[in-house]
Design a binder for these strands. Sequence first.
DNA 1: TGTACATCAGTGAACGCGCGTTCACTGATGTAC
DNA 2: TGTACATCAGTGAACGCGCGTTCACTGATGTAC
Lengths: 237, 237
Amino acid sequence: MTDSSIPDQLTPRAQARARTQQRILELGREHLATYGAAALSLRAIARDLDLVSSAVYRYVASRDDLLTLLVVDAYTELADRVLAAHATAPADDSREQLRLSCHAFRDWAVAEPARYALLYGSPVPGYQAPAEQTTEPGTRVVGLLVRTFAAADEHIVFAPPEDATPVLDFDSVTSEFDVQMSDDAMHAALALWAITVGLTSLEVFGQFGAEPPVDLSVLFTVQIDGLLGRLGLPAPR
Amino acid sequence: MTDSSIPDQLTPRAQARARTQQRILELGREHLATYGAAALSLRAIARDLDLVSSAVYRYVASRDDLLTLLVVDAYTELADRVLAAHATAPADDSREQLRLSCHAFRDWAVAEPARYALLYGSPVPGYQAPAEQTTEPGTRVVGLLVRTFAAADEHIVFAPPEDATPVLDFDSVTSEFDVQMSDDAMHAALALWAITVGLTSLEVFGQFGAEPPVDLSVLFTVQIDGLLGRLGLPAPR
DNA sequence: TGTACATCAGTGAACGCGCGTTCACTGATGTAC
DNA sequence: TGTACATCAGTGAACGCGCGTTCACTGATGTAC
């Protein structure tokens, strides 16, 4: 898990530095899981590192800086998982791509509740994620969903949500993700995104109680399959 | 806003106590909004109350106790709003009841982001809400949705989410809310619940960015109307 | 109605804890000649 | 290849801050006779 390839030709000092840097990220993830983002403390990390508290400042500019590092790290890992799952499906099977993407999203969240909370839960008091570093990794997953619906939009006619749907201007979204698609396809994409985040948050944040009344992984499957079908992407045969 | 009726026939001391008790709750709400739940501090509240820090313990057993008070307070206010909106619709119009309920949910959340975060966001580190006090107010909203779908289930045939839907045992849920309904109606209720929480959390927790690309209140309307229609509760002609 | 006693809101000091961040420093590692 | 100098990881002390909770206390309010 740790051996994220530190190049041999680096100077010993540089290797040690890289190792410590990695270790800080790992400890950050652990502390996130154990104490939550609001309680993330540089001093506690220094302690676990067997360093004096001021030494951590050789590696990290401030507490907020570490938080940003962890946010980017989490968004990146989550997006990597989702993209990998997406790529597993046949290139022409939008439904399967979306299904697998949503499941990968939930699976990661369930496995990493604290990091999920950092991304999709309450904002950390007193901390504002810097948009420049955070936006790109943070939009990879939605971007994938939107792009997949745009692709599906070429062979499928998505129905409008209702008969008289108010018109929204999605131009800034389609241009951000560099796609062309109907408003109906965009609404479908957002519906899937919202239900995925909704179910995942309800589960991870404990709204189903300590002992959920039903198997939440089955429930998720049913709900996602159901919505995909209703949106116009029914299961084959 | 403050005059929550303190009975006149109470002794002056008892009246003062009631007033202080109320004031603590209000300050708690404010601090929640300003600093977040993790940073909620009895000392800070004492300061705002012009009391010495130890005096707060006359009113509140501990910090966790105050958090529980705030959780119950927030769940209660939210549920009151949603139930009131629900009651506004004609008794036989399930679609309208649900629509108004969902909108009331979002409206409250947008108006009270910090309290919403306390209920539906990341768990507060080191704090576990006591189920005995929290479950009842915390399930009023879902209960209402479920009961409304159960009522609708009597005149409407809800379609199964997909052709071959795995069977889930919802008995513990239906008996908790004291209703009878088809699994398909239950799935529909959960879909609406999930998309409501999903859209609301995405909005309140800032996932649409500082300047959302579209009007989120319109988006919410479209999405809820769309899902209600797809679930088998279309808008009247 | 007046008095003696009980209640209890609020005080002030203290305990023991944690935090982020700065700063002058030492001494090992790395590099240029 | 050996030496002189520059870099920089880690130290230790300090600043100033905040927190929850306990405890013995004072003095005003409430109550029973």
